Amino acid sequence: MRLRIFTEPQQGASYETLLAVAKASEQLGFEAFFRSDHYLRMGDVDGLPGPTDSWVTLAGIARETQTIRLGTLMTAATFRYPGPLAVSVAQVDQMSRGRLEFGFGAGWYEAEHTAYGIPFPATAHERFDRFEEQLAIITGLWDTPVGETFRFEGRHYRLADSPGLPKPAQSPRPPVIIGGSGPKRTPRLAAGYADEYNVGFSSVKETEAAFARTRGAVEAVGRSAPMAYSAAQVVCCGRDDAEVARRAAAIGRDPEQLKIDGLAGSPAEVVDKIGQFAEIGTERIYLQVLDLTDLDHLELIASQVAPQVD
């Protein structure tokens, strides 16, 4: 089982805070540092000092780290045009010397679009239509051989005579991650475009069912390329009950409910829950760390959880 750190900086984090978490994650041996792609806080927090752009952030962190993999869960297709996004992701992959992973989703949080003047398609159907076209465009641009051009004619996007440059450092492209628990379209898109399928904040049973749907879609299209299966869970680990309660209070959660809904409790309890995910075929766990000032939390997980699930 590979452990990855996943942050939600829209809840309140500067670039310097994110860099400190990324560097600590690298030094402690976590496989990857990921961040969300949001422009507006969620819930009862002030969100200060305000949002940070995911790709600007990852570009900076790419130059200040050496080995840890970097990525988004999930970049919103509603935020950016596909051509410029392909350029940005390829450039950050180059800046990281091939350590980038591209988590990509349809977008869903209407309030942040309203807050920052971003058009928000009125229906989920249209958002997924745009998302599917963007997947075809972005991967198509990266896959176009140097010296050839790329063309795309869709309902929402049209490209002509694109050189498909720049190319990512990774060949043929950075790993693409698609997530969600939708019963039909998400598994189909994952089977067609993703290198990894992710289920976020769901029970073991719900995650297993979602994995099964995607495995079915992979089989239906006759895909031979491997698919990685991963999950994202809130983490709240402590050496004793008092430490768990303190960390849960810091993120506004009930510790007992977190034990049901996430990965919470003593290192042994967290290891046991991770083991349940491993039993259904989960290969990677994204540990959603909500208090980004508590680097001792990362150290505890690295020293007392990671060795038992590796």
Rank of each mutant, 00 (worst) to 15 (best):
E64H: 07
F34I: 01
V92N: 01
G98W: 13
G265C: 02
L189Y: 08
G50H: 07
T114R: 15
R213E: 04
D44E: 15
I260K: 15
R2S: 14
I178E: 06
D272I: 06
W55E: 01
L100H: 02
P119T: 01
T52Y: 10
N198Y: 00
E112A: 01
Q276M: 09
R130P: 08
I68R: 01
R151W: 15
L100W: 04
A86V: 06
G262T: 02
P163I: 00
Q66N: 14
V92A: 03
E299L: 10
G275E: 06
I5K: 01
G180N: 02
A242F: 09
G154T: 10
R99N: 02
D254F: 12
P168Q: 11
A245N: 12
A225F: 10
M227D: 05
P82N: 09
L159N: 12
G140S: 04
M227Y: 07
E16W: 15
E279Q: 14
D240W: 05
G275F: 11
L292R: 06
S36E: 07
D291N: 15
A24M: 06
K184L: 14
K167W: 12
I285L: 15
W142M: 02
A169M: 15
A278T: 04
G238Q: 10
S25A: 15
S230N: 05
F79K: 02
I285Y: 02
T149S: 09
L290W: 10
S171P: 05
A136F: 12
M1D: 12
Y193H: 10
G117R: 08
L19D: 07
A212L: 10
V244H: 02
E243I: 10
